[in-house]
């Protein structure tokens, strides 16, 4: 019995999710719903702070009958997708350009580490001044925040390119584009996907934040409106919708990652990022 065999077996056991785990997970969700239903009914929390779950659901059903709800949902999704797409394109292009030139990378790496922690919400006042309360204000935040996630991952990816492969490509005098396509891109792809997954989550956070604070159209704005008008049921219903979108975004990002990397030889361990 070899060490590899032993650890492989352990990993296999861990990956395997028995159906009983799914059952337990559903039970946990049911428990949460029951707790939210019963706690206000039993008087443990006041209804004007936390209405019973069924009330939230019926409020959600009411809203789902209005066009305004669906427009807001669409606005949120559109803002998220547009911002993420811009950030992804800019992050990948700039990341490969910067990462491909060693001197540039050395000079910029620390700058990027320096600029990255600047909180995106610091730009809120500026965005409002420049674009008012329109969708573009929020788009600026979304692009700014998710761009860093993508860029940093792409830089990791380009750094990870096997020096031998790099040298080979050079010695055969591949043209730049060929080199990017055949050597850099395949290595960087898993990192790009990690950047996509992290960026997707961050983009959603900032999209909702922008709507909530700036008031650009979307579900976040409706939450703010519900809050100021004291429509607690509606507010909770919208928060649940936003949470479900978040779950969907995470699942979608992970599924895309798996699908794109299905063929990829690297069995990269989940990056702790």
């Amino acid at each position: 019995m070899t060490a590899a065999g032993a650890s492989g077996r352990g990993a296999g056991r861990r990956r395997h999710r028995p159906s009983s785990a799914w059952g337990l997970g559903l039970l946990g969700l049911a428990g949460l719903m029951a707790a939210v239903e019963l706690a206000p009914r039993a008087g443990l929390v006041q209804r004007r702070y936390l209405p019973p779950f069924s009330t939230m659901v019926s409020s959600l059903a009411d809203q789902a009958g209005t066009g305004a709800f669906w427009r807001a949902l669409l606005d949120t999704l559109r803002g998220w997708a547009t911002g993420l797409a811009i950030a992804l394109a800019a992050g990948v292009v700039l990341g490969i350009a910067i990462g491909g030139v060693p001197l540039l990378r050395a000079a910029l790496a620390s700058t990027i580490e320096f600029l990255r922690p600047i909180p995106s919400v610091a730009l809120i006042p500026l965005a409002v001044l420049l674009y008012g309360t329109g969708a573009r204000s929020t788009l600026l935040l979304v692009v700014y925040a998710s761009f860093w996630q993508v860029l940093v991952q792409v830089l990791y990816g380009v750094r990870d390119v096997d020096p031998v492969a790099r040298e080979t490509a050079r010695s055969y005098r591949f043209r730049t584009l060929t080199r990017v396509r055949t050597v850099i891109w395949p290595t960087a792809l898993p990192y790009v996907m990690t950047g996509f997954r992290l960026g997707a989550a961050v983009a959603l956070i900032l999209e909702i934040t922008g709507e909530l604070v700036i008031g650009s159209p979307g579900l976040g704005e409706r939450i703010a409106v519900a809050q100021t008008s004291g429509a607690v049921d509606a507010m909770y219903a919208l928060v649940i919708v936003v949470g479900l979108i978040g779950v969907a975004v995470n699942l979608l990002a992970r599924a895309t990652e798996r699908r794109v990397l299905r063929w990829h030889p690297s069995v990269r361990r989940e990056a702790v990022a």
């Binding site: 997970g25 969700l29 428990g31 949460l32 909530l212 939450i223 519900a226 507010m235 949470g243 779950v247």
Partner: peptide, 28 residues
């Protein structure tokens, strides 16, 4: 067992963009 029970619940809470917690917690 606890992990299997709570994982989906925790995933849901993680997926809620944190800023929407502000209006909720203002209630409390």
């Amino acid at each position: 067992t606890l992990r299997a029970l709570l994982e989906p619940v925790l995933e849901f809470f993680r997926a809620i963009p944190p800023p929407v917690l502000v209006p909720i917690l203002m209630l409390f």
